[in-house]
Design a protein around this nucleic acid. Structure first.
Length: 959
RNA sequence: GGACGCUUAGCUCAGUUGGUUAGAGCACCUCGCUUACACCGAGGGUGUCGGGGGUUCGAGUCCCUCAGCGUCCACCA
């Protein structure tokens, strides 16, 4: 045991212990037969990501949970890994290529490009996992997964095949959200609606045959054109109709007639009636452009209208937009179109207009609704996914998120899972050479001579062409909780301990990915895991039958009828996690989300250097109430560091105070206690210790981390350091009482370190070691079990010490006396010297209570001594719960000032008494309030009355 | 247009099922380097608990309503 240095140097300690933990494989997730497990899968960060404050919060929470579980004796397993992050990574590499080589991905070709991405990944990837180590995260690093690893990829492709075979997947030409920058389709979830300022253009479409309409009074008036409004005049050349509401009397006569299309080829387009048109909006007429708007597309379908696509995939106009616009970028084209319409007299006015426009979440540009061939998924197990949350098999914290979740599932839409990217899992579908992909029917998809679907591809691969598209990243990460445990390979599952660690226990993540990830994982877990007999071919018990799957190269069964609903026990076995904890978003002081572009996010690594990993962890959690956003404040982190330093010094003081006797087990420390020497302070601190232990149990059960950290803070700093250690100083100097007093401190510090370790693993480990708490055969803190409050209470009781609840009250009173004494000194402008004396005017019983504590009290308040007086003194006085306290400074009393002070005090007391009397005088109150409240009020009144009486006497004495 | 969250001290936030005189940290002021810690100790708070209404003996806490801020969902051209 070496000497503890004067201040806590976090960085040295952190590096040393992390290496030791890894060396000893402390974080390995291994379960003994029958052992309770606690599993967390990390929300896999982007493989090329950099640690930001959101990660710090999220991972600190996970680490706290997993470390606590370890201390509770559970087999804890925290599975780390990274996500290949399709679009994000591909975009990053493309940018890099452009910059360094001036090339695009198509210049390199698919194979070469992918090679470059892998090189990039190997160079820049996994950096974030190293950063998590700096933070102290106790992941089982040997289980690190990457969504593009061979095993994981196999899981992803297997899931596709299973869903395909089950009839959940289809291919279809439908409207998708197209990103003109990334050149791929996106799912609805990847589209963000943003209020966007633009213009709305009021246009006239000339009627081919002038007609008449009826005004509000029923008068028939001539009509030469239709008025309609659009925000996208550049797409007019792709208009194929104008629609009005069928019940709109203004236009009844016009339906079936035609207008001239004002841009592009001057052709006639029909006026049709469709209920999708809102007659109250603008003029009640809508230009129908099926290729460029979802609603228009649907109208087009209903009326069998042609589709004219006027845009290139990259967002520039094509030849269908007309010679004036072709080649222009879409927003330039919009301007140009408006100019042309103006020149032709079709533009009535252009008004500034703000509307919600779908933007690509990643690229930040408006998306284009675009008609393309894509792969779609009908979500499996939707009903069961609702049920498991509704029935509480999966609990969300805070609970309110389950409503958001259920609402989404109620309105769920098919998932566009194909992406026109290269970086990702290439869809395991091969088309027979020579077939036309555009015209494939649902039946063709099931025809093995036309379509081949398998893990390893067709044997005669030369006759086939593989699908170009890859899967949406989320269509791989939705398998994360079980693919990381070996699914679907039986051997891998056995090795990973699937049967023990699945379902995982808690998922900690941000609510921003509740749809992207959480909901989908639940459906995937329900669909793919489990050992029930109703499963589809190739999914036998514990993933057996995968070989069979691999052989399934030529036969694809017809879609199965919907799988039967799962039973309660199947649901329980298949859910991917039991709890979902949604942590808040870390915001800056102004409440803005922290982001790279704003530059308002501090680098966590800098903070670790400045405040230590423990300081950062503790500081952040202190300000992270359940499910509430966190406003980041560096002062909090600083206070986290300050707390660590306080703990450090308390430990150091303990070491200085006396020999470190046997600390190697709870039992050893308990044996050093001398029950006969237990005083009120011992009882009070042990009571507080048990209470803190109990609070922590509740906090972890309820995911109330802020409460937990606050409790630890106030217990250690206020209860232990500020009071217990201070009052114990007197006893520690008494050879007879010393051993006992130090044993109590050792007991408190030991339990505190165990409670604190999940939040601050480094400093606790260091002190655990320095103070000799580690048994000979168990080097690390985590090797010792954390006793529950009741177990600890029982152990202490077994040593003959039962916490005396009244002792805490007496100590509270003493604390008040100390505080009042100091107050009196400050009031009298007495510096904190010791040459003052206090006298207590106390009855015999009170004095007996005080006398025992007089010496330590004197020390606490900085007095030479505290004596008793039986008569009133002409000295500055203050009324305390244990009698009137006089301060003798040796200076003549300033009677006037004293009178003022006491009068002020008297006024406050009188006011309080009046309030209490009024309450107690109220019959409604005395008859209806519970006895405890009533008694409390009476006691309070009595106390205050006694105080008033004493103040009256003191004032009288001053005359 | 729906749904949810937030509004308490200068700042960041606690306030359990309604029950003494609403708390903590930071910041600020005063005093103190008392042999663990100046990353410390002691003392210092007159807060319309966002506004209004209601229920109740009693409301920061429950109900209604309004306002501001934030988030999510939604096809209004």
């Amino acid at each position: 045991m070496s000497e503890i240095s004067k201040s806590y140097e976090a960085r040295d300690v952190e590096a040393k212990w992390y290496a030791a933990w890894q060396e000893a494989k402390c974080f390995a997730g291994k379960a003994a037969p029958g052992q309770e497990t606690y599993t967390i899968v990390i929300p896999p960060p982007n493989v090329t990501g950099i640690l930001h404050m959101g990660h710090v919060l999220n991972n600190t929470l996970q680490d706290a949970l997993i470390r606590r579980a370890r201390l509770e004796g559970k087999a804890a397993c925290w599975i780390p890994g990274t996500d290949h992050a399709g679009i994000a990574t591909q975009t990053m590499v493309e940018k890099h290529l452009k910059k360094t080589e001036g090339k695009g991905r198509r210049d390199l070709g698919r194979e070469e490009f992918l090679k470059r991405v892998w090189i990039w990944r190997d160079e820049k990837g996994d950096h974030i996992l190293k950063q998590l180590r700096e933070l102290g995260c106790s992941c089982d690093w040997d289980r690190t997964h990457f969504t593009m690893d061979p095993g994981y990829s196999r899981a992803v492709l297997t899931s596709f095949i299973k869903l395909f075979d089950g009839g959940h997947i289809y291919r279809g030409k439908r409207m998708v959200n197209w990103c003109p920058v990334s050149l791929t389709a996106l799912s609805d979830e990847e589209v963000e609606m943003r209020p966007t300022k633009g213009h709305i253009y009021r246009l006239r479409y000339e009627l081919v045959e002038p007609s008449t309409t009826t005004d509000a009074e029923g008068n028939v008036i001539p009509l030469t054109h239709l008025i309609l409004e659009t925000t996208r005049p550049e797409t007019i050349a792709a208009d194929v109709a104008v629609a009005v509401h069928p019940d709109d009397a203004r236009y009844t006569r016009l339906v079936g007639k035609a207008v001239w299309r004002p841009l592009g080829e001057r052709i006639q387009i029909p006026i049709i009636a469709d209920a999708a048109v809102d007659p109250a909006f603008a003029a009640g007429a809508l230009k129908v452009t099926p290729a460029h708007d979802k609603v228009d597309f649907e109208i087009g379908q209903r009326h069998r209208l042609p589709v004219i696509d006027a845009l290139h995939p990259d967002g520039t106009m094509n030849e269908f937009a007309g010679p004036e616009l072709a080649g222009l970028e879409r927003f330039a084209a919009r301007k140009k179109a408006a100019e042309i319409l103006h020149e032709r007299g079709n533009l009535i006015e252009a008004k500034p207009h703000e509307n919600n426009v779908g933007h690509s979440q990643r690229a930040g540009v408006p998306i284009e609704p675009r008609l393309t061939q894509q792969w779609w998924l009908r979500y499996p197990r939707v009903e069961e996914a609702k049920q498991v949350v509704r029935d509480g098999l999966i609990q969300m914290h805070p609970e309110r998120w389950s409503k958001v979740y259920l609402n989404w599932l109620e309105n769920i839409q098919d998932w566009c899972i194909s992406r026109q990217l290269w970086w990702g899992h290439r869809i395991p579908v091969w088309y027979a050479k020579g077939i036309d992909r555009e015209t494939l029917t649902e039946a063709d998809l099931r025809d093995p001579t036309k379509i081949h679907v398998s893990l390893d591809g067709p044997a005669d691969v030369e006759n086939w062409i593989q699908e170009d598209d890859v899967l949406d990243t989320w269509a791989s990460s939705w398998l994360w909780p079980f693919a990381t445990l070996g699914w679907p390979d039986a051997e891998a599952q056995a090795k990973a301990g699937f049967s023990q660690f699945y379902p995982t226990t808690t998922l900690a993540t941000g609510a921003d990915i509740i749809f992207f990830w959480v909901a989908r994982m639940i459906m995937a877990g329900l669909e793919f895991t489990g050992t029930g007999g109703e499963l589809q071919p190739g999914q036998g018990a514990e993933g057996e039958g995968q070989k069979e799957q691999a052989d399934q190269t030529s036969v694809h069964p017809r879609p199965k009828p919907l799988a039967p609903r799962l039973t309660e026990s199947e649901l329980k076995a298949r859910i991917p996690f039991k709890h979902v904890y949604f942590n808040g978003i870390v915001r800056d002081k102004q409440g803005r989300k922290m982001s790279k572009t704003l530059g308002n996010s501090p680098d966590p690594l800098d903070l670790i250097v400045k405040y230590g990993a423990d300081g950062l962890r503790f500081g952040l959690l202190q300000s992270a109430p359940l499910g509430q956003d966190v406003k980041f404040d560096e002062d909090r982190i600083e206070s986290g560091k300050g707390f660590c330093n306080k703990i450090w010094n308390a430990a150091r003081f303990r070491q200085i105070s006396g020999p470190m006797s046997d600390n190697s087990s709870l039992h050893a420390i308990l044996c050093r206690l001398d029950p006969s020497r237990c005083d009120d302070d011992d009882h009070a601190i042990l009571t507080a210790l048990l209470d803190t232990t109990r609070t922590l149990e509740r906090s972890f059960a309820d995911f109330e981390f802020a409460g937990a950290t606050q409790r630890l803070y106030s217990f250690f700093w206020n209860d232990f350091c500020d009071w217990y250690v201070e009052v114990a100083k007197t006893r520690v100097q008494d050879p007879a009482a010393k051993d006992h007093a130090l044993a109590v401190q050792d007991l408190v510090i030991r339990q505190f370190l165990l409670l604190f370790e999940p939040f601050a693993p480094f400093i606790t480990e260091e002190l655990w070691s320095l103070l000799g708490y580690a048994p000979a055969d168990k080097r690390f803190l985590q090797d010792t079990r954390l006793d529950t409050a009741s177990a600890l209470a029982a152990a202490i009781a077994a040593r003959g010490i039962t916490a005396d609840p009244v002792a805490s009250e007496r100590v509270e009173k003493l604390k008040q006396v100390a505080s009042l004494a100091r107050q009196l000194k400050t009031d009298q402008a007495v510096p904190q010297k010791r040459d003052v004396r206090f006298f207590v005017l106390a009855r015999q019983a009170e004095w007996l209570a005080l006398e025992k504590s007089a010496a330590k009290l004197a020390r606490l308040v900085g007095a030479a001594d505290i004596g008793r007086t039986t008569e009133k003194l002409a000295l500055p006085a203050i009324v305390t719960p244990l009698g009137t306290l006089y301060l003798d400074t040796g200076v003549k009393i300033d009677a006037a000032a004293e009178r003022t002070r006491l009068t002020k005090e008297l006024e406050a007391v009188t006011k309080h008494i009046a309030g209490t009397e009024a309450r107690l005088g109220n019959e409604a109150f005395t008859s209806k309030a519970p006895p405890a409240v009533l008694e409390g009020a009476r006691k309070q009144l009595a106390d205050q009355q006694a105080k008033r009486a004493e103040l009256d006497r003191l004032l009288a004495a001053l005359r």
